[in-house]
């Protein structure tokens, strides 16, 4: 039993990690209709910004977290203006090449400025433990789960109730119609990119301390983020959250009760099964709408 609870906890942490990274990816697709291949790099750059603020500049951890989110929001707006805007409404191939180019640019930029070797990003919470009933984890891991849930709740409220959130939903339904109804698409696009990038920064700053920070972290992250996004339905925020936790728990329980060799296989088997039987994702409603 104790083993089961520990494994569920492990799965929840992993699930939060996946959900947090996937959220920004699915938002950009949902609102702007653009698959951002550079999202893994947003996460990586966010982690480095958090690392610089917290470790190099010695700011308190939560100040660094908020600081990284703000800095990355500005970064998101710049990227939207410079890269996403010229790609808007272009053929898919242009979008793929454009965001892939951005991905390579950011990855090599990080390799050049921060070096390719991994660094430790210790926070005060990585050395604090919670040990109850033989279950053990660091406070940092608990923090990942809690902050993820809080961010998801805030995001949900914003999208549901705020005027801009409503505008985002309108854009996600039909960009052209939304613009005809007087929605300032440029504002919505910038806000979306800013939120997506700051979510990636939150992910990087929260997850950095439990693992390591290096430029290559983007590559490993983006594969899982895409899986989660597709599983939850492209552009579906709630779907991404549920899919993230599903994948995290599936991996953790596979290792616990079947075999660690099958970890990735089970995760991706779930993905393929979903794609075959419900190609719009677990929570997707309509997939043929975007022609």
């Amino acid at each position: 039993m104790q083993n089961f609870i520990q494994q569920v906890m492990n799965g929840l942490v992993l699930g939060s990690v996946y959900a947090l990274i996937a959220l920004g990816l699915t938002m950009i697709y949902g609102v702007l209709g653009l698959i951002n291949w550079a999202h893994g790099e947003f996460y990586m750059v966010g982690a480095f910004v958090g690392y610089i603020l917290a470790v190099r500049m010695g700011l308190p951890y939560f100040v660094a977290l908020v600081g990284a989110m703000l800095i990355m929001a500005v970064f998101g707006i710049v990227v939207e203006r410079v890269v996403f805007l010229p790609l808007r409404g272009r053929p898919n191939m242009n979008v793929i090449i454009g965001t892939l180019g951005l991905s390579v640019f950011l990855l090599d930029g990080a390799n050049l400025t921060m070096g390719p070797d991994p660094v430790r990003f210790p926070s005060i919470y990585t050395d604090q433990f919670i040990r109850v009933l033989g279950i053990s984890f660091t406070v940092q891991r608990l923090l990942v789960v809690i902050v993820t849930l809080v961010l998801i709740a805030v995001l949900r409220l914003f999208i549901r109730n705020h005027k801009l959130g409503k505008a985002m939903r309108a854009c996600s339904q039909d960009l052209q119609a939304a613009s005809l109804m007087g929605i300032e698409i440029n504002h919505v696009a910038m806000i979306t990119a800013a939120i997506a990038a700051s979510l990636a920064a939150a992910a990087g700053t929260l997850i950095g301390p439990i693992f390591l920070v290096n430029p290559q972290m983007s590559i490993a992250a983006v594969g899982k983020a895409f899986a989660v996004t597709i599983l939850g339905g492209l552009g579906n925020v709630e779907g991404a959250v549920v899919a993230g936790f599903t994948l995290g728990l599936a991996e953790s329980l596979t290792v616990a009760y079947i075999s660690s060799y099958l970890k990735e296989i089970v995760a991706f088997a779930i993905l393929i099964t979903t794609l075959v039987f419900k190609p719009e994702g677990i929570f997707g409603k309509h997939s043929v709408e975007k022609v």
């Binding site: 520990q6 492990n10 942490v13 992993l14 439990i210 490993a220 953790s252 290792v255 616990a256 060799y261």
Partner: peptide, 20 residues
């Protein structure tokens, strides 16, 4: 005998199993 892939970052599942 537990395995992981190069680039993996989270080993809690394998280590929990081993601990048990």
């Amino acid at each position: 005998e537990e395995a992981y892939n190069i680039g993996d970052t989270d080993f809690y599942s394998q280590l929990t199993k081993i601990k048990n």
